[in-house]
């Protein structure tokens, strides 16, 4: 066969391509593009929840966000969720994956299943389980802490503004570390064993081998894990809504819950749209970043 027989002429999409794409494209336009455009348009108006009267407000909703301390507090909490989740979920996930990669004497599958199990549960169910565990009156956690001779927080694990966000980070870690572990384990198992054997001959073991072989070997997986966690940290809503609803005293307020509160509790749909647009921009930026990184890798 000649080279020319292998090369296919580059042409644009034919009719069948469009026919196959149409259903998916239709759904994307209906459920993502149109709502997003409406949200962008709505952010320039003052609208009540059931109001058909849209009053043009220009950039007022955006300037309001700039001057709204709770908006900034929510954004800060999102950043804490992002950084905290990376450290806890990706960090612990890496450690657990390394343990599994080295091989346990027995029960490796059971260990993996137990760690991964919370991931398949609904976040609302996870929240309810932890609400019961951390209940200050009947919860097991307080009983355990007291049994260890310590004093549980007097305002409760989720009622104390100083610790509530950190407690939520721990719950999120409990739920998602298993996923990170599986992701990173796949990366670890893709590293050829010969590299470690050759490095061992050259005297590189332990941390040196981890730094020069393991880390570069799972670099791309780690980048994906960090990006997934980052996007998740900005999108977080359900876990916080089901546990604290952004309280106490806005201590766990994130952009997702703040948008909800503005839209449905206070009826400020225009302002909620403006904050949604800000969140959308952050998500688009992160999506673009993810695309760049995956292209490079």
């Amino acid at each position: 066969m000649s080279d020319t027989s292998l090369a296919k002429p580059v042409t644009g999409p034919d009719a069948s391509t469009w026919i196959l794409l149409t259903p998916a494209l239709g759904l994307v336009i209906l459920f993502i593009v149109i709502p997003a455009l409406l949200a962008i348009a709505g952010s320039f108006f003052t609208i009540g929840i059931g109001s058909t009267n849209w009053q043009f407000a220009g950039l007022a909703n955006y300037t309001r966000a700039l001057n709204d301390p709770i908006f900034w507090l929510a954004l800060r909490n999102n950043l804490i969720m992002v950084v905290g989740s990376i450290v806890l979920q990706v960090g612990f996930g890496t450690v657990l994956a390394a343990i599994l990669d080295r091989g346990l004497p027995r029960g490796s599958t059971l260990f993996r299943t137990i760690i991964f199990a919370p991931m398949v549960m609904s976040t609302i169910a996870v929240a309810l389980i932890w609400l019961v565990i951390m209940d200050p009156n009947v919860g097991a956690l307080n009983t355990l802490v007291k049994a260890l001779g310590m004093q549980p927080p007097t305002q409760g694990w989720l009622g104390d503004p100083d610790i509530a966000l950190w407690v939520i980070l721990v719950i999120a870690m409990w739920q998602y570390t298993g996923f990170m572990m599986v992701l990173i384990l796949a990366g670890l198992q893709g590293i050829p064993r010969e590299l470690y054997e050759a490095a061992a001959l050259d005297g590189a073991r332990g941390l040196k081998a981890f730094r020069h072989i393991t880390l570069p070997g799972i670099r791309n997986v780690l980048i994906v894990a960090v990006l997934i966690t980052t996007i998740g940290g900005f999108k977080v809503f359900d876990l916080i809504f089901a546990t604290t609803r952004g309280g106490p005293a806005n201590a766990t307020q994130v952009l997702g819950t703040y948008i909800y509160q503005q839209a449905f509790n206070l009826g400020n749909m225009g302002y909620a749209n403006a904050i949604s647009v800000v969140l959308l921009l952050i998500a688009v930026l992160l999506g673009w970043l993810q695309l760049q990184v995956s292209r490079r890798s």
């Binding site: 209940d135 200050p136 009156n137 927080p153 305002q155 409760g156 009622g159 104390d160 106490p248």
Partner: peptide
């Protein structure tokens, strides 16, 4: 009141 009223659900307080 008990400690942590802001972390106690209405259902739990009723059950007490």
């Amino acid at each position: 009141f008990q400690d942590a009223p802001n972390a106690t659900s209405p259902e739990v307080s009723r059950s007490l």
